[in-house]
Simulated scan of single mutants.
Amino acid sequence: MTPVAYTRIPRIDKALIARAARISVADLHEGLGAVAGRQCLMSVQMRPMHRGRPVCGQAVTCYNFPGDNLMLHVAARLAEAGDVLVVTNGGTPHGALWGDVMTHFCQTRGIAGAVIDGAARDTDRIAEMGFPVYSTHISVSHPEKRGPGSANVPVVVAGVTVNPGDLIVADSDGVMAIPPHLLEAAVANAEAREAKETAIRKRIDGGETIYDIMGLQAEVDASGMVEIEGTWQDAQG
């Protein structure tokens, strides 16, 4: 198979990306609905190397042969400011895909972050640099630069198919890849959810309980639960 690299990705309206960037991964996940929300959510193995560094930007993807990171360098050359590099070698820890020198390069280019299905290294240095990196493994394992692989093609990353141009959103809770055609509805639903939760917090501050605000008595009644006055020990005689 001949390696291939596509030079461009389909672009999403910047104003819509800015709206998404203000929303948590949890709210966007809920905004997508039960099915799409699960389809877009990466495995819990994908974790931030350092907490408190959210990411929101379009995916520039690459597949690297296990033990190799040549195509990462191709993808990094093609990425534009605000993009997120989405990198995989099939999820193996062999051959670190990411390190501090690539981090420095991406910072100079204004790249927003990196999502790595494979190994990253130089974690202490990257922490000092303040660049958002999410990965499934941490390992210093030496990478070759021989190929094969491809850039800006669909890739499977931590259980999710990511197409070039998908919106990557990530925070300490997890990482999602949202296809452009689902983004407007996801953002609108998430914004509505945020407004609803703000109203709930105000009601809690006013002395109400979540139980009553959410009307959970009907759900409890439907469950058939029996409420017994007293302690469990009392019931034992």
Rank of each mutant, 00 (worst) to 15 (best):
D27K: 03
E184K: 10
R109V: 03
M42Q: 12
H104R: 14
T92V: 02
G147P: 02
T161R: 15
A36W: 13
D166Y: 07
G147V: 04
G57V: 04
M46I: 04
M46K: 15
R22T: 15
L167D: 10
D234Q: 15
C106I: 03
C62N: 12
V35Q: 13
Q236A: 00
Q233L: 14
L216V: 00
A190M: 11
S172V: 03
A170Q: 15
M225K: 06
E229K: 15
A96I: 01
R22L: 02
E227L: 13
V220S: 06
Q58I: 01
G52S: 12
D83L: 06
Y211K: 10
A112S: 05
E197H: 05
T198D: 08
M129S: 14
G67C: 02
R47N: 11
H94M: 05
E219T: 12
R125T: 15
N152M: 10
S139R: 06
G130D: 07
V157S: 02
T108P: 06
G130Q: 08
P164Q: 08
A222V: 01
S135I: 02
P132G: 12
M1D: 09
A195R: 15
V87Q: 08
E184R: 07
D124E: 12
P179I: 08
K14W: 00
T136S: 08
P148S: 05
S43N: 11
T136F: 05
D122R: 04
H142P: 07
G149P: 05
A96M: 04
A185S: 11
L97T: 14
G224A: 11
G57A: 09
V133R: 10
L183H: 14
A199K: 13
A119C: 11
I17L: 13
K145F: 15
R146C: 11
R53P: 01
A114T: 04
Q58E: 05
S43T: 12
G57K: 02
V155N: 13
G52D: 04
G147R: 03
E208V: 10
A76I: 00
P3L: 04
T92P: 01
P48R: 08
A21K: 13
W98S: 00
F105W: 06
P10A: 08
V160E: 04
A185N: 12
S24T: 13
P164F: 07
Y211H: 09
A112T: 12
M46L: 12
T103L: 04
R22M: 07
A222E: 11
E144T: 15
I126S: 07
H137Q: 09
D27L: 03
V160K: 11
T231Y: 06
A18W: 01
L70S: 05
A15D: 04
I204D: 05
G174V: 00
G90F: 10
P3W: 12
K145R: 14
V155S: 12
L216A: 15
D173T: 01
H137R: 09
D13F: 00
Q236K: 11
P148W: 03
T136W: 01
Q58W: 07
K14G: 08
M225H: 10
G90L: 04
V25D: 06
L28M: 06
S24H: 07
N69D: 08
T92A: 11
A75E: 03
A21V: 01
I17A: 12
D166H: 15
A36G: 00
V55S: 06
A158P: 05
I17Q: 14
E197M: 11
L97S: 11
E191V: 08
I116T: 13
A5L: 12
P54R: 10
E144I: 10
I210F: 14
V60T: 13
